[in-house]
Structure formats: structure tokens, C-alpha cells
């Protein structure tokens, strides 16, 4: 039985993990190789941009990290091997789920019940991953401070991956099986998520303030220039008006911090040219103070601080 994103068609290979590896490496693709033992036991290997990332063994809904060698050695008892391509967002949310513990499981049967649940999470300012599974749907949604994160939302449907929020009745589903996760602060996937939230929020605040000071044209000019500079890195990070849209799958904190550092440095240099060093420093510091303490701590731990980005 397929475990993750079962609505997505397998890559037409010969069901051999080796062929799948060759495919992912050749395509520099992000994807998943699943070795199924039975309905309750499955091994999963994540490929990230053509490189084998991490492997997990999932038994009775609990995941355990295993070595790549261990994953490769699984052959006996494997009933089916499948490989699917994954969008970066699906990859990073799946990794977060695999590195987290199940908190709660329940079933949703009506739209009203779902809306009520979301309102409650909003009230509680809940942060965490939510997994939704049904006959025609499987996906993840990440909530941060009670808010659904539009960039961290992905579902597999018979039509493929969608990044919009589906309606319960739209896909002829009568019920959703919902799993909520609790995250360990030491888990790398969670640290990456917090860092991303912090960087995106800080970036948004910087860009809004910069626009106030110099107008929309210069802001767009800076967006365009930074997007151009980031292009060779093939990061799925895009500056759009006063938002930084990060849909890249960084499995390691160091890589993610490196990308943000490069981005903030280039941004600092651009702003320096227009509004000068003092104001750039001031703008970065003022906006940094507006970030939530946990996000700020995540940024500080990677030395992503105002002083690092102005001359």
C-alpha cells in the first residue's frame, strides 16, 4: 500500500530503487522512494535536488530515522517499491512530519467542524504541522502562531499536487483523517521551519519599510536585482514586492542560513547604495526588533543579525 501522497502517480520505472536513484540524480530532482513491507510498515528515502537526503522507517505511524545504507539493505519482505517526484514544499513538510511526534488524531466529517477547528487553533495561536488524509487527498498544512501558512500547504489529489486549500466535499471525500504533530525544538526540520518563518517575516518588514522610504519603483528594482543575483543558486526563493516567498527545500539549517545570509547581504548592499549605511543599519535594527522572540532567536543563532548586513 502506498503511504505518502498515494494519489500521485509513480515515476514509470522498473520498481527498482536503483533506477529511481539514477533518475533523481540525473534530473537533480526532489522526490521520494518508498519501500512497502505492509500497510503499517514502510521505509522512505527523500531525495533532495538529486542528492539522497534522509531515510526513515515508519511503523504504526511512528517514524524512526535510519541510515541510507540501512534503507538500501531493505530487500526482504518489500512488497512494492515506488518513486514519486515531490515539489519542494511537499518534501520539507514531509520531512518535518517524519522528524516529529504524533500529537493527536481525529476525523473531520463536515466543513463546519474543520472551520471550527481552525478557529480554535487560531485562538490558541497554535504552531505545528497538520496532516490530512482521505481517499482522494493527502497533504500537510503548517500553522504558525495560529495562522495557516499559505506557502507551507500542499495536497496530493488525483489531479496532482495542489497548493490551495481543498474543500471536504470537492473531492468526493466523506471524511478527513487528521493528524497533528508536536515538534522537538532540537529537530533540524523544525529549526529550519522556525528560521524560515523568521527570515520571511523579517524580510517582509524590511521591504515594507524600504518601500515607505524610497517608493515602489526602487523596491521593485531591488526585488528584480536580488532575484537576478539568486538565480544561479537555483533556490526557490523569490522576492515579490514586499514579500520573500521561500518554497525551497533546505534539509540542513546551515544551507538555509547560508541562503538567507547571502540574500540579506545583497539586500543590505542595495539599500546602502540608496539610503546609505546609517539608515540601512537603522532600518534593519528597527525591523529586527519587531520579530517574535523565538524567530529572532533562530535568526540570531545563525548570526543573521542587523550588524552583519550593513557596511
Amino acid at each position: 500500500m502506498k503511504y505518502f501522497f498515494r494519489q500521485i502517480e509513480d515515476i514509470p520505472l522498473d520498481h527498482s530503487p536503483v533506477s529511481a536513484e539514477v533518475y533523481f540524480r540525473g534530473e537533480n530532482a526532489t522526490g521520494l522512494i518508498e519501500k512497502q513491507f505492509n500497510a503499517d510498515r514502510v521505509a522512505a528515502l527523500l531525495f533532495i535536488s538529486g542528492t539522497p537526503g534522509m531515510a526513515y522507517l515508519i511503523e504504526a505511524s511512528q517514524s524512526k530515522s535510519i541510515s541510507l545504507a540501512e534503507f538500501s539493505s531493505f530487500a526482504d519482505g518489500v512488497s512494492h517499491t515506488r518513486a514519486i517526484n515531490l515539489p519542494d514544499v511537499a518534501g520539507r513538510l514531509m520531512l518535518l512530519a517524519l522528524e516529529s511526534k504524533v500529537n493527536d488524531k481525529f476525523t473531520i466529517t463536515t466543513e463546519e467542524a474543520w472551520d471550527k477547528k481552525i478557529s480554535r487553533w487560531k485562538q490558541e495561536q497554535r504552531s505545528g504541522l497538520v496532516e490530512v488524509k482521505s481517499k482522494n487527498l493527502h497533504g500537510f498544512i503548517f500553522f504558525w502562531q495560529g495562522e495557516l501558512q499559505k506557502l507551507d500547504l500542499i495536497f496530493s489529489t488525483p489531479q496532482g499536487f495542489v497548493s490551495g486549500f481543498p474543500k471536504l466535499n470537492a473531492l468526493d471525500d466523506s471524511a478527513w483523517d487528521v493528524t497533528t504533530y508536536v515538534h522537538s525544538a532540537s529537530a533540524q526540520a523544525y529549526q529550519c521551519t522556525v528560521l524560515r518563518q523568521g527570515a520571511m517575516y523579517w524580510c517582509h518588514k524590511i521591504l515594507v519599510r524600504y518601500q515607505e522610504m524610497v517608493g515602489q519603483k526602487l523596491l521593485k528594482m531591488m526585488d528584480r536585482e536580488l532575484n537576478r543575483q539568486m538565480q544561479p543558486w537555483h533556490w526557490n526563493i523569490n522576492l515579490n514586492e514586499n514579500d520573500m516567498l521561500d518554497t525551497h527545500f533546505f534539509p540542513y539549517l546551515m544551507d538555509e542560513a547560508h541562503a538567507y545570509r547571502a540574500l540579506f547581504m545583497a539586500m543590505g548592499a542595495q539599500m546602502n547604495f540608496v539610503i546609505g549605511n546609517n539608515l540601512t543599519q537603522r532600518l534593519l535594527s528597527e525591523t529586527f526588533e519587531q520579530i517574535r522572540p523565538d524567530e529572532r532567536a533562530a535568526l540570531q543563532s545563525q548570526r543573521l543579525i542587523p550588524a552583519a548586513f550593513s557596511e
Binding site: K217, M221, R224, E225, Q229, M230, P232, W233, H234, A262, L263, M265, A266, A269, Q270, N272, F273
Partner: peptide
Amino acid sequence: GENSGLLKVAIKSEINKP
């Protein structure tokens, strides 16, 4: 914008290529 020839900063601050 960039076509003005007055924005030299872009060259100086180029994000290091991979």
C-alpha cells in the same frame, strides 16, 4: 533602473556564484 548605468552597486554586491 539598471539601464541608467548609474547603479554600480549590483556589480559590487553580487551574491557569490555557486
